[in-house]
Amino acid sequence: MGPFPCVLLALCVASARALQLLATDQKTIVIPQGDKVVLSCKFIVGPEDTGTLDIEWSLVAPDTQQADQYIITYTGDKMYSIYEGLKDRVHFVSVEPQNGDASIEIINAKQADSGTYQCKVKKVPGVQSQKTVLTVLVKPAKVNCFIDGPQEIGRDLSLKCQAKEGTAPLTYMWQKLSGSSSPVLQSDATTGILTVKNASQDYSGTYRCLATNRVGNDECLVILNVLPPSNVAGKIAGAIIGTLLGLAVLGLIIFCCCRKQKEKKYEKEVQHEIREDVAPPKSRNSTARSYIGSNHSSLGSLSPSNIEGYSKSPYNKVPSSEEYEHPPSQAPNFVSSKVAGPNLSRMGAIPVMIPAQNKDGSVV
């Protein structure tokens, strides 16, 4: 045996005694958001590995200028969870990792958890590590289907499909579920647009759009109903006529309201109008009494020197209408007459004592 085979055999024997990590088929893992994933890391310790067992899981920094982020460790028979981004969501699969299973499980995975994870097992003098790439994707969701363009015979239109959620790249596929067979449809798998040229009634039916990415899919439905062209001119004329009729009715209502308001205002003004009262007719009896009363007052002020001129006046006679209708400035002409003393007393005359005078006018 030559020297080279001997050296190779010695290395194989030495490696069998040293720490080893078992190979895994999952170097790259892709999961949907919200699922759980197990990152495998199993090892075998050789008889020469007598040091303390240390297990470290870290998230490798994408930039070599940055340090790796430690996630969870096992050292001195104790476990430590370090990374806040995975706090309460990561743990060792085995409760005794020292027995050869250093795999970890991540629950409720998020898109931010995507990255390269490294498992490092150290038991002096043996040290081994391996990496696993984890990709967390968001499944397509809230897919919306709609029609863009007029659904009329001879016109061009488009059926559009769009997912509001989902990690790119997304693939869209259209399928006709009901209705008659139609010509070959042209659709864009990346934009989700199905183009229909020179539409006919054969295109009418129910269509389904399926949005897909690496972790899932979602779908939506839309109904296409291609009809003959509508009478646009008739619709416009009808709209104009309807508008004019509406304006006419509105104008009539406004006119009636204004007229009613004017009538109410006129009635209110008539009720508050101040009119001049008509003078009442003259009363003959009251005039006659006033005339007699004035004569009595005149007689009551007569003195003996001027009684003599009124003694023959007819006081017991009520004056006629022609006599009391004379103006107050024209006093009636009475005929002087002598009246007896008793008659004067009955008429309300007051007796007055007149002193005697001599011829020269002096009082006796």
Rank of each mutant, 00 (worst) to 15 (best):
A14P: 02
I254C: 11
W174Q: 13
L137M: 14
V335N: 13
C209Q: 03
G46C: 06
N358H: 09
Q162R: 13
E96K: 05
K110V: 02
I253A: 02
K142C: 03
S181C: 04
K36E: 10
T50G: 10
A211E: 04
G205W: 06
D54C: 04
A102R: 01
K131I: 03
N358Q: 12
T243D: 04
Q65V: 06
I254L: 13
S182C: 08
T28R: 08
C145F: 06
A248H: 02
F334Q: 01
S58A: 14
G179Q: 10
L170K: 14
L247D: 04
K139G: 01
P183E: 06
Y172I: 09
P319F: 00
G242F: 14
L8V: 15
K260E: 03
I104A: 04
G46L: 07
N108F: 04
S290T: 02
A163E: 14
E267H: 13
F334H: 09
A16L: 15
L302Q: 07
L224I: 08
V90E: 01
V222D: 00
K265T: 08
Q128S: 06
D277E: 07
N225F: 05
Q175D: 14
H272P: 00
I236S: 08
P228W: 09
Y83D: 00
V38M: 05
E308K: 15
V60Y: 07
L302Y: 04
P355F: 10
A67E: 09
T212E: 09
C12I: 09
M173C: 08
G242S: 15
P97L: 00
L19V: 09
G205K: 12
S305M: 10
V335H: 12
I292V: 11
L252I: 13
K260P: 00
T73V: 03
L250K: 07
G179P: 07
Q65Y: 03
P3A: 14
C257H: 08
Y207S: 00
V339L: 04
I107G: 03
E273D: 03
L137C: 07
V90K: 04
D202P: 04
C161V: 14
A211V: 15
I254W: 12
T64P: 05
R17L: 14
Q98N: 05
N144F: 00
G246R: 07
Q130G: 08
K264G: 05
E48N: 06
V196M: 01
P281Y: 02
L302P: 01
T191V: 07
P319S: 05
P327Q: 11
V232A: 11
G46W: 00
V215E: 09
V60L: 11
A248Q: 04
S336G: 15
Y70C: 02
A23Y: 03
S313L: 11
F255Q: 07
A349Q: 10
Q186W: 01
C41W: 06
V318R: 00
